[in-house]
């Protein structure tokens, strides 16, 4: 990691040892359904401590993406309670949600880069939205772009990038604001195995610096053997590997 990288990383995060023990994300008998259909998620109860790194696994349709959407407050559960940053989400006014979302970084499967903005602008977006001045963040953004190997692509529009480059740009955008929780939905789904391993290393590095990381993936080859895993089958928890402190 170079000097620019260290300025771009979540240095403000608390040391992992101090943070561990507090729950960042907590589900209590959570269920979710669209309209009157059967529940997509059913009776989920678990908690993810601060500074943990968790892999959510399961086959396609198991409810991984829905689970992540509930964590990043994109939807509200149809039953049960969810706490994020120690706050019961059912009690949070919707006007307060953007402020909570600014404490999270999100990487989605289809990257969600904005077509008319170049890579630099895409990555700088969370800081711009947070009201930071350009002079204050331009070095951070440039440094992070170098760190993810996009230093020479700052001017490129998303349609000029390869799948791997898009993925790295999306990840850079998710981490630029030094989030306390990083959520990634199939972040390695569109890249080759080598790139996938590099990205997982990047997430591990983020976690080492204190960020709570939740990654949904169906690619079990990428999950380290000692990893904390929340396995879903048909919207229910089928198995939990408790190495990193998941309480289910």
């Amino acid at each position: 990691m170079n000097t620019a990288t260290s300025t771009s990383n979540p240095s403000r995060a608390e040391p992992k040892t101090q943070m561990q023990g507090r729950d960042n994300i907590r589900f209590d008998h959570v269920g979710f359904r669209y309209t009157r259909d059967a529940e997509i998620l059913s009776d989920l109860s678990f908690s993810l401590p601060c500074g943990s790194m968790t892999y959510v696994t399961g086959a396609s349709g198991a409810g991984k993406t829905t689970l992540l959407k509930l964590i990043y407050l994109h939807m509200r559960p149809t039953r049960g309670l969810i706490s994020v940053f120690g706050r019961d989400t059912s009690q949070i006014d919707r006007k307060a949600i953007p402020a909570l979302k600014r404490r999270m970084g999100i990487v989605l499967q289809d990257f969600d880069l904005i077509d008319h903005l170049n890579v630099f602008e895409n990555v700088a977006l969370p800081l711009r939205v947070a009201g930071q001045k350009r002079a204050a963040y331009k070095d951070d953004v440039s440094g992070l772009l170098k760190w993810v190997g996009l230093g020479g692509r700052a001017h490129a529009l998303p349609q000029m990038l390869s799948g791997g480059e898009k993925q790295r740009a999306a990840i850079a955008r998710a981490v630029i604001a030094k989030p306390e929780i990083l959520i990634a939905d199939e972040p390695t789904g569109n890249v080759d195995q080598d790139m996938a391993k590099r990205l997982i290393r990047l997430f591990t590095e983020m976690n080492r610096l204190g960020t709570t990381v939740v990654i949904a993936t169906h690619n079990k080859d990428l999950i380290p053997k000692d990893a904390s895993i929340l396995a879903l089958v048909n919207g229910q928890i089928s198995n939990v590997t408790n190495d990193a402190g998941i309480k289910a």
């Binding site: 953007p98 402020a99 979302k101 999100i106 969600d112 880069l113 969370p126 939205v129 955008r173």
Partner: peptide
């Protein structure tokens, strides 16, 4: 729609 979704994702308030 994508711009709106991404702004929502990165924590932009509706007023923004």
């Amino acid at each position: 729609r994508r711009l709106i979704d991404v702004l929502h994702q990165v924590g932009a308030p509706p007023s923004y």
